[in-house]
Structures are given as C-alpha cells and as structure tokens.
Write a protein that binds this DNA or RNA. Structure first.
Lengths: 333, 333
DNA sequence: GGGCGAATTGCAACCGGTTCCTAAACCGGT
DNA sequence: ACCGGTTTAGGAACCGGTTGCAATTCGCCC
C-alpha cells in the first residue's frame, strides 16, 4: 500500500539514491533526473517516510511540547501559538501532558525514544529539574515561562516575575491604595515567591503601606474564590489585591460581587496574564500582560537553534510586561 | 551517544534478536537471557528507538490529533482529556493545528509520513471531507464531535445536535418562555443547522410560540457580543435566547448586563457545552452539557480498535446531553 | 575527435529495530 | 546414555530512507 523510494526509482528508471537526492534539498541531481523522478513520484503519490529519514539522519522534525498546565485558560492561547509556530517552521509538536499522575522520567524516556529534535517545556509550575533532566538525557531543551536563575542550566524564555511584582505594586500605589493585599498562587511556586519578593520590595519604599499576604492553593478559579471567601470571613479586607493570575482574580471577583462588594468601589483587583476572559464584558479585569507571542516565538527559535547547533550557549530571555488597564482598579490619581 | 540494540547485545553476550525479543511483549526468551539482557540494558540506559521499531513493525504508537479549534475555551478541557486518554493507552498525540491558513492536504501528507497509527479529528466545525480524505489516504480515522449522517464514511463520536435543539426548546418552553430567540453559531455550520432544526421542530409543537433566528459569525465571545448588540439595537428582544455555545452566550450576557438588562429577569439565556467558565460566579450560565469525557474515551477507543483492526465496521456513537441548570433562565413553572 | 575537470550517478553500507527460519539447547522419560 | 518434542538462540533479510565513494557521463575547449 505504501509507496517507497524503490517504487519511484523503478518507475522513473533511476537508482534509489537519485530519488532520495531529489527529495533532499541541496543535493546534486540533474534537471532531467529530477523531473523524471518528480513525475514518477507524483503519479505514485509518493511521500518520503519521516520515520525512515529520521532514522538515518537523526533528525525527526519532531518537537516535544511538554506542559502540566492543561486547565488554565491562558494555555489555550499558549497551545495555539506554539503549535502554529512549530508548524510554520516545518516541524510538528509531539504533545506531552505531564499531569500529576504521570512520571516525568517516563516522559523523558519517551521523548528520547522518538528522538525529538528538541523539547520545549511550557510551564511556570513545572520544576526546573525536569528541563535539566531532559538536558542530562541529551535532549536539547528550552524552558518557556521558566524562572531566571543566576547560573542557568537550560535556556529560559519568560518574564521577570520579581519585576512583575514591582509593577503591580507601583500600579496599586499610583492609584492611592495603601492597605494592600497579595493574593498569590500556590505559596510554594517560584512565580509566587518572585512576584511576592518584588511586590514587597516596592511597597517597602512607601513607609505608610500595609501589606497582607495570602495564597490560593492552585492557579485556578475555584482556588481564588475559596481564598477570597476565607479573607472575607476573617475580618476586613485590604483596599486592593494583586492576584496570582487572572483566573484567581476572576474567582476572587466573583466572590466579591456575590457578597455585594463593589469592585473597584470597595475593593480593587489586579490580575496577571491578560487571558482572553479578562477582557470579557462580565469581567473587565485590570491585569499585567505577558507577551505570549514573543515568548513563544523566541522559545521555538531557540529550540531550533539548539537542535541544529547543540553547543549554542545557554541564554535567558526576559521579555517586557505591560499593564492593561480595565475596570477593576480605581483610576490613577 | 545513543545506546542501541547492538550495544546491549554485546554487553549481555547474546544476539541482537535476543535483545529485541526481551523488549517485545509475548516473544519467547528464557528467563536467563531475559535477566542478562535486562541488566545490560539497565546499565547502559537503553531505550529502544520508537522510530526504528515503527519502521519495521509499521506501528508507531502515534495518534494524529487534529483540530481547528484552538481558541474556544471548551477545547482546553478537550485537549487535556484527549492527551491523557491517549497517553494512558501507551500512545502519544501528534498535534495538528489546522487553522485557516494551513493546508488540509499537507496535514494529511504529514500524518502519512509519520505513519501515525490513527487520526482523531476533534472539531465540530471541520468539514467531514477532511476525515474522509484521511480515510482515503489509508489512515484510520475517527471524527470526534462530528456530525451523524445516514451513510457515514468514517466513525463519528459526538452528540445529536438536533436533539440538542429540541432539548433547549423544551427547557425554554417549560419555563414559560413563548417569544423565543435562536442565537446560533455561524449560519453555515452543521451544528448550527442541526440545532436550529431541532429547535424549530419542538417549537412548532407549541402553536402560540414566536421564534426569531439570528447567528453569530463565529463560535466566540466577541461574535456573541456583537450579535446581541445588533439585536438590542434593532428592536425589542425576545424573552429568552438559545445560544450557539457558552462562549457566545457569555458574550451576549456581558452585553445585556452592560446595557442594564437583567438576566434572567428581563431576558433568559441558555448556552451549550458547559465549559468551565459557565460555572464561574460571574457567569452562572444555564447550559446543556455534552459528555466530553465519554466522547473522548470512546473516540480514543475506536481509534485504537481501528488501527489494530482496519476492517472494523464504521459506527456512530451519539452520547446523551444533560441540562445544567444555573442562573440565566427563570425557574420552571 | 580527444582530453580535462566538474557534475551526476549508482553501489553498498548504514541508521536501529523486527521477524522468519533453521539449528542448537533443553526437557522429561526410558 | 539416548530419544523425541519443545523451547530458545542466532543468522540474515527486511523496514525505507541517507550518504560516502568510485565510476560514469557531461560540457567545453583545443
């Protein structure tokens, strides 16, 4: 059923190598053979086997796309952009869902078995060790949405979360908030820690400020709602909260509105990510946008570079954030 | 760098075939050789190449997962469930983003090149021709969220959209609505047409009813918002609307609330899909749930069956819908 | 027409497994 | 120790390409 090199070669009356060469860009074939081969190939509906070619060349044009974040709405956009970017470069994404109950080591073994050209880890909550293990296993890897470190093992493309914390603090201060809450994501997440560090830093420069800290158990709507409920039950609220991400913020917002609190009248809220729902009329969340498209473009570019040139030096790319002003913070004073 | 069969064979002091057999379930190897091989393999960190094995066996354990729906929030859940289901069965998803500007034929060629074991098309808006073309190209295929037809070419797993229309109509009628609107998805989509057909059918059984029909240009928040704005600008609204899906409904809901209309006080709204955001406190959308997990489990099961037994007869599986009552319809009378 | 270097071509080995087939090792029984 | 019937092991061909190398062909000039 499948048409092979040999079939085309016989039909075109040339050798198998000749056929292979006409399909290998930059190989030496005469115009005459090329056209004979191309015609035969077209007649037979020949498409070279990526498996066989991967086997002999060592490059499969497969990119392992690993994430553990299949429930956060922001990842819809992330997957869309990643798959497009990868496809546009002539590669294909082999998707790995690294949810709680799957073994990271097994995933790495699998990626090696399929000899993917490179791995892109797309997650801010996956430990840096995973990417490092990929590298140790000989897989070129880049960590998108990863954490910048002083001595990085693998290339990281993302944002400066400490700066994100500062930016949020500045936004709140500029709008006259002084009794301020940090409603972060999971306390153990590096994103949470970094943003909190930046947030504290900036508030510390304003003596009269009060900072209260609390954490949602996961980056999810319900965790945000639960934590905001808890805060409401345990005394007066702060004037405004910097939330771990948009989906946490939306959870908090829902609880506040349901309890009859006005946002931004009674309480201010600022999120993080600028996911699509943040701009819904029902939501209109003020937030900090991370440049997804750039992060992804750079990640894919680096993954490719690394797969072609394994000795490419490890770099970190931190891209700029933007404050997106909508309706959950009072206007600047 | 990569450890091969040969390396393991030499180290274990056996033939390459012996090694291959210890890694092939159900092959005949003595306990003694097996343990020698396993030890050697462990010492060397050997993992058999999926490429090579795919090349000789013809099965790659790759499943092509094709969709054109990377922006609808419901697909986050869909991708999560699909990737898990596929991985749990020992296969891996090769993701194909079939967005507007990508060539379907190229995608099929690509899937053949990688000799995927089967293709799952996950989309209600992708033409049935795509799946049919896969089949014609010799790829086992199942169409998840596809449309049931009288003489199906490929297996379809999904829901009965005509029944969905009826169900929505019954829900509205039962709550006393008589002046009723259909705010569908794109007019050309089969889902829209089928649901409208069922909707009409059921309303036709209630003589005193008025039905108005309109369509959002895409299954998206903004299209829903735009269409609802248009309706508001062009005269009095119906008492309640059946929306093309949840995201359209949420767009419409946002516009209504912004305009000061009460939902469900002034206007009722019912969506479709039961995506996660439908249950957010800010939204609490009454909707019709399609059983994603079952659709996906069945789809994956069929894809596997088909890949192992290509002559499996073509079946259609339509799974039951559930009305999820939240807060955008007045109570049943 | 002969000679020369460059462009093409085909052969054959190889990528890393799988599997058919035959030969060897093994088993219990006598 | 020998026999007959199973297992098990190894050799070799094959899956469908790629590529180094040597041989051939080509174009061009004298």
């Amino acid at each position: 059923m499948t048409v092979t090199l040999k079939d085309v070669a016989e039909r075109a009356g040339v050798s198998r190598s000749a056929v292979s060469r006409t399909f290998t860009p930059g190989a030496s074939v005469s115009a005459k053979t090329r056209s004979k081969v191309e015609q035969a190939a077209a007649e037979l509906g020949y498409a070279p086997s990526a498996l066989a070619s991967g086997l002999s060349t060592g490059r499969t044009k497969l990119i392992g796309l690993v994430s553990n974040n299949f429930r956060n709405p922001i990842f819809l956009e992330v997957f869309d952009l990643f798959t497009r970017a990868i496809q546009d470069r002539g590669l294909r994404p082999l998707l790995v869902n690294l949810s709680e109950d799957t073994d990271p080591e097994a995933a790495i073994r699998m990626l090696r078995q399929y000899s993917v050209d490179a791995v892109i880890v797309a997650s801010s909550t996956l430990s840096a060790a995973f990417a490092a293990n990929c590298k140790a296993a000989g897989l070129p890897v880049v960590h998108a949405f990863g954490r910048a470190t002083r001595y990085p093992e693998v290339p990281v493309v993302g944002i400066d979360n400490v700066e994100a914390g500062r930016m949020a603090a500045r936004a709140l201060l500029a709008r006259g908030y002084r009794d301020i809450g940090f409603l972060g994501g999971p306390a153990g997440a590096t994103t949470t820690q970094d943003r909190l560090a930046g947030f504290r830093q900036e508030l510390a420069r304003h003596p009269g400020c009060r900072l209260r800290e609390s954490f949602a158990s996961t980056y999810s709507h319900d965790a945000g709602a639960v934590e905001m409920s808890r805060l409401m039950d345990s005394g007066p609220l702060a004037e405004a909260y910097f939330c771990g991400d948009d989906v946490i913020a939306i959870g908090a917002l829902g609880v506040l509105r349901k309890a009859g609190r006005e946002v931004p009248g009674d309480v201010g809220l600022i999120g993080f990510n600028d996911m699509e729902a943040a701009s819904w009329d029902l939501v209109t969340l003020t937030t900090i946008r991370q440049p997804l498209d750039e992060i992804i473009a750079v990640s894919v570019g680096q993954a490719i570079a690394l797969s072609e040139q394994p000795e490419t030096p490890v770099t970190q790319t931190l891209l700029p954030l933007t404050l997106i002003e909508r309706g959950t913070l009072r206007p600047e004073m």
